[in-house]
């Protein structure tokens, strides 16, 4: 998995514009006394695909969860699509409806069918008419290649299928940015591929993506930047080729040697 399609040329669609999608400046966060994120500065342009890596407990999840305010930051500034995240609920709702998120454990709603999972937010948040919402949902379910499961419940699907439903569910809100928090780390190897393929397809369509993952093959293939975090800080960021072949910091080297199994 480490060297899938290293030679794949970047598709033309994967262009990055100059427009800023996410701007994080001097962001700090504490859990009680524990300084979990320290002076995070990060600018993401529209169409950029960023992979975030780092050892366990380094604050990767916390950082991307700050972007849609699942976690609150105590200092610094986060601006998403021109909307600054403050305690103003209107802004938070606005950002959340524009930012999709996929979780490690899928978090599908087990009491609703796959189709209902996908149409719920469009109907109740975007006020889309039901018929249109169903059409959109079927469109995205086809895209993640499981339209035939639409009337089943999440508990009846495999992990990989559930994660693809979770991606479809986010896409139904037509988000401009997608966040992924270790979307494949709860999956068996053969299911990882089906989820990664879906994500690669999404990347090729120009979606702005931030992805916490340890799938380095995926990082090489689609990322235009890899960010390495440790102890709540961004330690190194670089283009994937450079990052993997020529890591600068000692921590990165150590991490890569562990994760690539040398």
């Amino acid at each position: 998995m480490t060297n899938t399609a290293v030679e794949t040329p970047t598709p033309a669609a994967m262009k990055v514009s100059d427009e800023v999608a996410i701007q994080i400046s001097q962001m700090n966060k504490w859990y009680g006394q524990f300084h979990v994120l320290r002076d995070i500065n990060l600018t993401v342009n529209r169409g950029e695909r960023i992979v975030i890596a780092g050892p366990s407990g380094s604050g990767k999840s916390t950082m991307i969860r700050c972007i849609n305010r699942l976690e609150e930051h105590q200092a610094g500034k986060i601006v998403v699509d021109g909307t600054e995240l403050t305690s103003d609920l209107k802004n938070i709702d606005k950002v959340r409806s524009e930012v999709g998120m996929c979780f490690q454990h899928f978090n599908l709603f087990p009491h609703l069918t796959i189709l209902e999972n996908c149409t719920l937010a469009p109907i109740w948040v975007r006020k889309t008419p039901k018929k249109e919402a169903v059409e959109t949902a079927m469109h995205f379910l086809e895209k993640v290649k499981i339209p035939e499961q639409a009337n089943k419940y999440p508990g009846q699907l495999s992990g990989g299928q559930q994660q693809r439903v979770a991606i479809a569910r986010s896409l139904c809100m037509k988000p401009r940015i997608m966040l992924f928090d270790e979307p494949t780390s709860a999956l068996d190897p053969e299911m990882i591929k089906e989820v990664l393929d879906t994500m690669i397809e999404l990347a090729e369509e120009g979606m702005t993506m931030l992805c916490v993952t340890h799938e380095m093959g995926f990082a090489r293939q689609v990322a235009n930047r890899v960010i390495f975090m440790d102890q709540g800080q961004i330690v190194e960021q670089n283009e994937p080729e450079e990052f993997f072949n020529n890591p600068r910091s000692e921590r990165t080297k150590l991490f890569l040697s562990q994760i690539l199994g040398h």
Binding site: D93, R96, G100, F103, N107, L120, A121, W124
Partner: peptide, 23 residues
């Protein structure tokens, strides 16, 4: 209920009352 259910509802932009009622 697992915390993930609240988070998924939040992440989809459902407000407190809608999340309570639907999820």
């Amino acid at each position: 209920l697992p915390k993930g259910q609240y988070e998924a509802a939040d992440a989809l932009g459902l407000d407190y009352w809608k999340a309570q009622r639907l999820i």
